[in-house]
Amino acid sequence: MASVARFLIGVALVAQPAAAMARTIVLSNDDGLTSNVKALYEALKAQGHDVIVSVPCANQSGMGAAIPLGRAFGPLGEDCRNHAAEAGEPGAGPMTRAGFENDYFYVDGTPVMAMLYGIDIVAAKRWGKAPDLILSGPNEGQNIGTIVISSGTVSNAQYAIARGIPAIAVSASASSVDDEHLANPTSQTVARLTVELVKALEERSRGQALLPAGVALNLNFPDQFDGARWKLARIGTYDAIKVRFAADRANSPDTIHGSGALPGPGLVIANNADAPRDDQKDDESVIIRKDIAVSVMQPAYDHQPSTARRIKRNLRGLLDK
């Protein structure tokens, strides 16, 4: 992974003026039609990229890599988020909200299902091939630390690189929500900076793949942008928030999502009151306190070959049977 880090450092994470190559991009997320996805779509189109948006009908945060096999697609039982499509419309297809008919698609399913619809159905029809890049997000809330295991935003990127498609998971602060106008100013800033990163990768690609094979990025923006710099980070072990099971959600003393929660057992998300250790200073949960965190991800769960060889030696007597 050291070579990947050198590659990204060489990119310098700040685009210099140059002619960018138009790319084919599938833009997905786990939130549905949002201010963030609209802003990023428009910013990418302004740079000449050919973009398909394919998102879940409803907010699917926390669904991770779920793919309910064998599920039949019937008509929508209710409107999609922000009226992307109305009740009674097919379970997947072009959005029907005025102004979103072109390039925008929805799926009444999980984040990965929506992304795969964009790749296997829409992209295959439009381009006859896989896209050059998958952008997943920008999420309404950062995906940092071990919670990425449950993130649909991150799982989309994981599925993409498993298929050999360069991918970037993008997450903004929770303050980027705007269901009334789909025009949150934070969305505009996140979109501009995300395009800046794509430009930087493009300039080093020389017309080839934007990222090395088997590599995805987890990009997280801070709550405030003043003075924020691009920083190479790692997912790490420090969690800014913790997920735990509470006996009574409504009366949990440390939950940040407990107001109005129904009494009884369930999951709560709590702030981490512990300060990070010195060896966690490069963790993205720490970096995003004031800077933009760019973490390098490998596909799925496979470990480094050197570690696998060590385990093989440790299990020599067993594996040779």
Rank of each mutant, 00 (worst) to 15 (best):
G266A: 12
R204C: 00
L116N: 11
V190C: 04
N220F: 02
I269P: 07
R81S: 03
R97V: 01
E140Q: 07
R163M: 02
I147G: 05
L69S: 11
V286E: 06
R23C: 11
R316W: 12
A114R: 06
D108H: 12
A169D: 01
P68A: 11
S176D: 03
H257M: 12
G70Y: 06
K45L: 04
A169M: 01
G137M: 06
A293R: 14
A228C: 08
T237G: 09
I311H: 15
R204F: 00
N220W: 03
G91V: 04
I134H: 02
S151Q: 04
A5V: 09
S61L: 15
D179T: 04
I9C: 14
G258C: 14
D223L: 07
A20Y: 15
G62D: 12
L315R: 13
I134P: 00
V122N: 05
G164A: 01
A66L: 08
A216Q: 02
V268K: 14
Y41V: 03
F225H: 09
I256Q: 11
D291F: 07
C80I: 05
G317S: 15
I165G: 00
Y159P: 00
F225G: 06
G264Q: 12
V11G: 14
T96Y: 01
D274L: 12
I165Y: 00
A15H: 15
V14S: 15
L211Y: 02
R126D: 04
P111Y: 05
H181D: 00
A5Q: 12
F7C: 13
